[in-house]
Simulated assay, not measured.
Amino acid sequence: MSVRPYLARFALLGAVLAAPAARASDLYSYVDSDGVAHFSNAPSDPRFRRIARLKDGGGVYRGGKAQARARPLPRSEAQARYREHIRAAATKYNLPEALLLAVMAVESNFDHRAVSEKGAMGLMQLMPGTARDMYVGDAYEPAENIEGGARYLRILANQYAGDMVKTLAAYNAGPEAVRRAGDGVPNIPETREYVRKVVALYEAYKAGR
């Protein structure tokens, strides 16, 4: 799967992949004078402060099977149900709303009570450890779950320099699996299919379909 076409479509926020001293599992943040929150795993600005330490290998399914395989809700219905939460998270973490919709569609089919066989929870299917690291108190509460999933996507996007394919692969299988795959998409059928579906839905939602 070619990753180059997606690089320009996935905006970055803050410093990325710079200081060698920073741990890839640490998350740093600061809020600038305009009220914009900046996040990075490799801070280059003295205003950054560490706010979380992620466990290596953290992902959503870690090889487990996604629960939701039904046809996703139409874009208009999904947006109507969670529009305010999606917009807030997309704005805060500088992510496309279409990407959050696509991830939710594949992860849970927009079922906020969804639970995978591996224990991933809610709309963005957060594993318990990932939910804790993303400060999600109730993974079944839509606003908290969407916020946590968006925060984790931003961390991964910063880690992979905005590469959407690698970001999605790590969201599904975990950053450690991506590392073991030579910084590429792991040869895991579920993960490859997951990336394909999310990217296809992202393009469809972005086009208004």
Score class of each variant (00 low, 15 high):
Arg87Gly: 06
Leu100Val: 07
Thr91Val: 10
Ala78Trp: 05
Glu84Trp: 10
Arg83Ala: 15
Asn94Thr: 13
Ala105Phe: 00
Val103Tyr: 03
Phe110Pro: 00
Ala98Cys: 08
Lys92Val: 03
Pro72Ile: 10
Arg87Val: 11
Leu95Pro: 03
Arg75Lys: 15
Asn94Asp: 11
Ala78Thr: 04
His85Ser: 14
Pro72Glu: 08
Ala98Thr: 08
Leu101His: 03
Leu99Thr: 05
Ala88Gln: 02
Lys92Tyr: 07
Pro74Leu: 14
Arg87Glu: 11
Val103Gln: 05
Ala98Asp: 09
Leu73Thr: 12
Glu97Phe: 06
Gln79Arg: 14
Ala88Ser: 05
Pro96Val: 14
Glu84Ala: 15
Ala78His: 06
Leu99His: 08
Val106Pro: 00
Gln79Gly: 11
Tyr82Asp: 03
Ala78Ser: 09
Glu107Cys: 01
Ala102Asp: 06
Pro96Tyr: 15
Ser76Arg: 15
Leu99Cys: 08
Glu84Cys: 10
Ser76Glu: 14
Thr91Asp: 12
Tyr93Cys: 04
Phe110Asp: 03
Ile86Gln: 01
Arg87Ser: 09
Glu97Met: 09
Arg81Glu: 12
Glu107Ser: 01
Ala102Gly: 09
Ala105Tyr: 00
Arg83Met: 11
Ala88His: 06
Pro72Leu: 12
Glu97His: 06
Lys92Ile: 04
Leu95Ile: 04
Lys92Gln: 13
Gln79Tyr: 14
Ala90Met: 05
Ala98Glu: 08
Asn109His: 13
Arg87Ile: 09
Arg81Gln: 15
Val106Met: 04
Ala80Val: 11
Met104Gln: 03
Val103Thr: 06
Glu84Leu: 12
Val103Leu: 05
Tyr93His: 09
Asn109Cys: 14
Arg87Pro: 05
Leu100Ser: 05
Ala89Asp: 02
Ala90Gln: 01
Glu107Met: 01
Ala105Thr: 00
Glu77Ala: 15
Arg75His: 12
Thr91Arg: 12
Gln79Asn: 09
Leu95Phe: 06
His85Thr: 13
Leu73Tyr: 14
Leu100Phe: 10
Lys92Gly: 02
His85Asn: 13
Asn109Pro: 08
Met104Asn: 02
Ala102His: 03
Phe110Glu: 04
Ser108Met: 02
Leu101Trp: 05
Ala102Glu: 07
Ala89Ile: 05
Ala102Leu: 09
Ala80Met: 13
Val106Cys: 03
Ala98Val: 05
Glu77Cys: 11
Leu99Ala: 07
Val103Arg: 00
Leu73Pro: 09
Arg83Thr: 12
Glu84Val: 13
Leu100Trp: 08
Ala102Gln: 07
Leu100Thr: 04
His85Asp: 15
Glu77Ile: 13
Ala98Ile: 07
Tyr82Trp: 14
Ile86Cys: 03
Ala88Lys: 02
Glu107Pro: 00
Pro74Thr: 12
Met104Lys: 00
Leu95Asp: 03
Asn94Glu: 11
Asn94Leu: 07
Ala78Gln: 06
Pro72His: 11
His85Ala: 15
Arg83Gln: 13
Glu84Ser: 15
Ala90His: 02
Gln79Glu: 14
Leu101Val: 04
Met104Phe: 00
Glu84Phe: 07
Ala98Trp: 07
Ser76Leu: 12
Leu99Gln: 04
Pro74Asp: 13
Ala78Asp: 02
Leu100Ala: 09
Ala78Val: 04
Arg81Pro: 08
Leu100Asp: 07
Thr91Tyr: 10
Ser76Met: 12
Ala89Leu: 06
Arg87Leu: 10
Ala88Leu: 00
Ser76Ile: 12
